[in-house]
Simulated assay, not measured.
Amino acid sequence: MKLFSTERTNVYLLTPDLADSLQLFLLENRSHFAPYEPLRHEDYFTLNSITQRIESALNDYEARKCLQMVFTLKGENNIIGSINFTNFIFGVFQACYLGFSLDRASQGKGLMHEALSKSIDYVHKTYGFHRIMANHLPDNARSSKTLGTLGFVKEGYAHSYLKINGVWQDHVLNSLVLPEEA
Rank of each mutant, 00 (worst) to 15 (best):
G81R: 10
R64M: 11
K118N: 03
T51D: 04
F129D: 04
F152S: 07
N59I: 14
I80R: 06
R8E: 02
H113R: 14
L39P: 05
M112P: 05
Y44N: 00
M133N: 11
A182I: 14
L176Y: 02
F33Y: 06
M69P: 04
L14W: 03
F129H: 01
E37L: 07
K2T: 09
P138W: 02
A95C: 15
P179I: 12
N29P: 03
G151A: 05
A115W: 10
E180Y: 13
M69A: 01
D17I: 14
S144C: 10
L147F: 09
G110M: 11
K2S: 02
S106G: 03
Q23H: 07
N174H: 12
M133C: 12
T6I: 11
Q169A: 06
T72W: 13
N78Q: 15
F88Q: 03
L67P: 04
S49E: 09
C96Y: 02
H124G: 05
N29Y: 01
H171E: 01
E181D: 05
N84L: 11
Q68P: 00
R142L: 11
Y122N: 00
E76Q: 15
A105F: 15
V167W: 00
M1P: 08
I50V: 08
K65R: 14
P16T: 02
P16D: 03
A182R: 13
M1F: 06
Y122D: 00
F85Y: 14
A63H: 12
L14N: 00
P38L: 06
H171M: 01
G99C: 05
L176N: 02
R40A: 05
P138N: 03
L67V: 13
N10F: 06
S101R: 14
Q52F: 10
E76G: 07
Q94L: 15
C96K: 01
K109P: 08
I50E: 01
H136R: 00
H124P: 04
L173K: 06
Q68Y: 13
F88W: 04
S56W: 10
G156F: 12
A63S: 13
S175K: 00
T72E: 08
F45D: 01
F85L: 05
I83D: 02
V123F: 07
V11N: 03
N78L: 14
N140T: 04
E114W: 13
G148A: 12
G156N: 09
V123E: 03
N174I: 09
F100V: 08
S119N: 05
A57Y: 10
Q23I: 06
D139K: 02
Q94Y: 12
V70Y: 08
S175N: 12
K154A: 10
F88L: 05
I89K: 09
S21M: 09
F85C: 05
K154E: 12
D121W: 07
K109H: 14
K154V: 15
S49T: 13
L73T: 12
A141C: 06
L3H: 05
D20W: 10
L47W: 08
S82E: 11
S175H: 13
T86S: 14
L98C: 07
L137H: 03
R8F: 05
T149D: 03
S101V: 10
G108L: 13
S106L: 11
T146K: 05
E114S: 03
N78V: 13
K74H: 07
E114P: 11
L137T: 02
M69Q: 00
N174S: 12
Y44F: 15
G128A: 09
